[in-house]
Amino acid sequence: MTDGSPTIRKREPSAGRDLTYPPLPQALTVPVYDNHTHLEVQDGDDSLSYREHLDRASSVGVRGVVQVGGDVETSRWSAEQALREPRMLAAVALHPNEAPVYDEAGTLDDALAVIAELATRPRVAAIGETGLDFFRTSGEKALAAQYRSFEAHIEMAKENNLAMQIHDRDAHSEVIATLKRVGAPERTVFHCFSGDAELARVCAENGWYMSFAGTVTFKNADNLREALAVAPRNLLLVETDAPFLTPVPHRGRPNAPYLIPYTLRAMAEYLGTDASMLAAQITSNTELVYGSWNAEPVVLPSYTD
């Protein structure tokens, strides 16, 4: 895992997908950041290292990424790569679907302790993704573990004054209730925002950020676009969640940070605004949430292929 190994996971194969990476889109005039991506996951026919991903991203006006871990191993990898790559900041956490797995093995507290230590490292800019997932997790014990993990992560974000990225799947009202009950971190992001206009209003009232992924370009996602329309611009972020959720017109093929211009342009078009101004707004927002990508220096030698 060390020495900047290019990837440490592989996406589960599924039948019938086109496994080639889509071509480069036209570059953005005003650059943005991909505030949620998983470059440790290998997907597609060609294996791209995080460096290749970021070089492609740079060439189309994607200035940097937040590399997000979901368990102990990927969080460690994220924190370490961020120390060698100036275009990468890290987010560390136990994914809500991983928390019950650790719990079952009796290692949840140990794993949380690892995340808590990673959270203090330089260039770790966020706790995430954490939250609640009622789509893939069920059962009283498993859900209890999920809640316990979520609340522990909220505390870590607050203690370290870090942003927090929330994974919320089919659990809107429980996520909101938890945030209100224990108090949300100052900079809270709904990663891969999946709510409707109503949730967008709740986020707006509380000053929570809404990060839109490729799903907002999907044909059947009118509720997401309605949410986008009511979301205050100063709370908008954009992400790929790569290698998942590839935006239209390449839905189904492997996703990567360099494909974010499709999502950004679709958002601008739907809002009837200028893509460059929206990009400038989102970049301002992103730097407010995570700070400057240059605030803390990289200290490890860069990875060589």
């Binding site: 611009r233 100063n234 009837g272 101004m277 400038a280 707004q281 407010l288």
Partner: peptide
């Protein structure tokens, strides 16, 4: 106001000035 948008929606000046001055 941001070009092309309606008055009611476009009091959108949350852009950091350095986004423009950097370029």
């Amino acid at each position: 106001l941001v070009g092309g948008e309606k008055m009611s929606k476009s009091k959108l000046t949350g852009i950091a000035p350095n986004q423009i001055t950097d370029t």
